[in-house]
Nucleic acid binder design. Structure first.
Lengths: 145, 145
DNA sequence: ATTGTAATTGATAATCATTATCATTAGCAA
DNA sequence: TTGCTAATGATAATGATTATCAATTACAAT
């Protein structure tokens, strides 16, 4: 059993929640997928392995994963919330191509530090932030010429 | 007639769109309000002056304002799109208090420059970005002690 | 002014992701 | 095994936004 599974089980135990096959299956599938996944995409995969699972349960488990610290929400502003791994996957921002939709994870420690300073200069204590950089990737730029 | 109204009328003319009292009224009210406003909030104000106006028209005019370059969307991730003035209101980011919801507009030219460089280092040509800084303002920090 | 035409409007239905409801099922501690 | 309560699946509800469509209206040409 890996560390994420351990965290999940401990979270369940601590909160008097039950260990069900649905939760196990959805957790497995989420953990095997890298990158961003929407609730619907996850549900589609889950259905293939167990068609009896309802999508409400997928939404419910995703909420649990967030509370347990295993997942994190991302909102690209297209009306769909996506989820990504949080465990051993430190904070980062996203670079999104307006042409093909490709996304890259980026971090710049100088920007991170400056954000903190900007917030403090207004009396704020920064807890977190979101930064989305939009543009055109190399491929899409050539196509647009 | 002020500059924004001028821009709006020129936009209408250029696109063979008609000048209607509904569009005029909604424009007026939008221009008089500073800050962020949702479609629903705008509709509530519009209704008081002309109860016959439907909310679909408010949505439609907001779209026009964006196309005409007079408004800009903001998405705080709470499921409601807000609108703010764009004319003579240069780009900025938002500092949002997780306690009371207060928002401040902030800009840091160094961050802006670094964002461009980060994007370029991945071969991207940056067109725009969003940055939301979340934390607790001075007031809310004291209350939480 | 009148008219013709295409844009506009308001009312309302539709959409779509997400959440709530609720009767049934099933963990799990005793 | 039993009893209690959480969990599930099906489905309805929600809420912001968008689409539809018949009736109205702006506006250019007459």
């Amino acid at each position: 059993m890996n560390e994420e599974q351990n965290i999940f089980h401990k979270y369940l135990e601590k909160h008097d929640l039950r260990d069900t096959p649905q939760r196990e299956l959805i957790l497995q599938i989420f953990l095997r997928r890298e990158g961003h996944i929407s609730a619907e995409q996850l549900y589609d995969i889950v259905k293939k392995r167990d068609p009896s699972i309802g999508q409400a349960t997928v939404y419910r488990v995703l909420k649990l994963l967030i509370e347990a610290g295993l997942a994190r929400e991302i909102d690209f502003g297209d009306g769909v919330i996506r989820y990504e791994h949080k465990y051993n996957h430190p904070h980062h921002d996203h670079l999104v191509c307006r042409g093909c939709g490709k996304t890259l994870e980026v971090v710049d420690s100088v920007i991170e530090e400056l954000q903190k300073r900007v917030a403090e200069s207004y009396g704020f204590e920064l807890t977190d932030h979101e930064m989305y950089l939009y543009g055109y990737c190399e491929n899409c730029r050539q196509k647009r010429q």
